[in-house]
Amino acid sequence: MVRTAWQVFLIPLLLGVVTVVGLLSALLGDHLWDALSWLTLGLICGVMAWYWFFARYTRRD
C-alpha cells in the first residue's frame, strides 16, 4: 500500500509544530515557559529514540 503525501507528512508536520512551540516558548518566558520547551523538545528526542531503538517494524504489503 502506498501512502499519500498527506499521510506521509502528517506526523512530521505535527512534530514540526511541536518543535516550533518548544523553540519559542523558552524565548518568551522563564519557569513554566522553560518547562514547556523541555517537554516539547524532549518529546522530539523521545520520538527519535523510540523509533530508533524500540519500535518493531512490521512489513506491510
Binding site: 500500500m1 502506498v2 501512502r3 499519500t4 503525501a5 506521509v8 507528512f9 506526523i11 512530521p12 520520538v47 523510540w50 523509533y51 530508533w52 519500535a55 517494524y57 506491510r60
Partner: peptide, 13 residues
C-alpha cells in the same frame, strides 16, 4: 522524504 518513505509506516526501520 515522500517518495522515499511512502511505502513504509512513519519511522519504520
Amino acid at each position: 522524504y515522500w517518495p522515499s518513505t511512502r511505502k513504509l509506516d512513519f519511522g519504520a526501520i
